[in-house]
Amino acid sequence: MSQRTYATPPGGLPPQSDLMTVDTGRAVFTDAYAVIPRATMTDIVLIALPHWDDTKIWVLSRPMTGFSETFSHYVLEVAPGGGSEKPEANPAAEAVLFVTGGELALRVAGDLHRMTPGGYAYLPAGADWTIENRGDAPAVFHWIRKRYIPAEGIEAPEVFVTNEGDHDPLPMPGTDGAWATTRFVDPADVRHDMHVNIVTLEPGAVIPFMETHVMEHGLFILQGKGVYRLNQDWVEVEAGDYLWLRAFCPQACYAGGPEPFRYLLYKDVNRHMPLDL
């Protein structure tokens, strides 16, 4: 496999000489899916959060009635010395952190972890954690948040911290490794009510059918390029773009070249469908 790379938001602001439609013109929001191109992730769309210092924060998805309703996905760029002693305000929120650039010090449950690109942490609801950039360069990471849904008689999952490099991608049957998924949680472990995986398609590989399912998706393109079929539309995407898919949005894709097409994928799993909306 080619060397792994991890796209990060460009930040800054485009020059006045840029045409609006060159890249940001790919942005679209429909009743079934959204496409947020990397070029839209500039400093003009940043937010600030309480108790975070020297940190740029982009919000790529949030729960919205009538659209995706289970999760929120942030990308954060932490300057040297920045971070948070009180990152999470909601004790019911679980999280996955995934590092794409620089180095971060994550302290959780009394243990200190050094996280570098490919670093992955699962933080259960109510976890006591802090995060800090102790390095000399900015650090970038994804923060995916979801309200944890307990299941009667099932223990809540525990904290774990790992790295993509420590997990072998699992090939889809019949694809000879051209389509594979790096899983950080056993799909049979019903303690977990969300999965955040990495999907890798080698150049020319294809998801050859229109997946139509109840899981909501957030997809951040980490590397490469591809063409997605979303509902009735063909959408070209590249490293740094984000896709946000409502439940049951039909989806399939082709991977372009010359490098692997890889994306960080969120989905909600392992719980009954709510009946009180």
Rank of each mutant, 00 (worst) to 15 (best):
V78E: 02
S61V: 03
G240K: 03
S61M: 08
K56C: 00
V99H: 06
I47A: 09
Q232T: 14
R114G: 06
M1Y: 00
P157G: 10
V75S: 05
R183D: 05
V199M: 09
Y33N: 10
T162F: 03
R229H: 07
W244R: 12
L201V: 07
V159P: 06
E216F: 01
E211I: 04
L277E: 05
D166Q: 14
V199L: 08
R147P: 00
M172T: 15
P171H: 02
M41H: 03
G118M: 09
P124H: 02
Q223H: 08
L265P: 00
E103H: 05
A255N: 04
D268S: 10
P187V: 14
H213C: 13
L201S: 13
R107M: 12
M1I: 08
I36D: 06
E69L: 00
P187A: 13
H272A: 12
D128M: 02
T30N: 06
D111R: 14
L230K: 01
H142Q: 09
G165Q: 12
C249K: 04
T181L: 10
G204Y: 03
F220W: 11
H195S: 11
H142D: 02
Y254S: 12
L13R: 13
Q16R: 09
F248E: 06
D31T: 12
H272N: 13
V237D: 02
V22R: 15
P171G: 07
N163W: 01
L243V: 05
T130K: 11
T212Q: 15
G119T: 06
M194F: 09
T21R: 07
A239S: 13
K225V: 06
L243N: 04
D241E: 14
R191A: 15
R114H: 10
T24K: 10
A205R: 04
A34Q: 12
R26K: 09
H195L: 14
P150M: 06
W58N: 06
H192A: 06
E103L: 01
F261C: 04
V75G: 02
V75A: 05
D18Q: 10
P15K: 04
G110C: 03
P14L: 03
W234H: 05
D186N: 15
V140T: 14
W244Y: 09
E85R: 04
G11M: 07
F184M: 11
P171R: 02
L60V: 04
P274T: 14
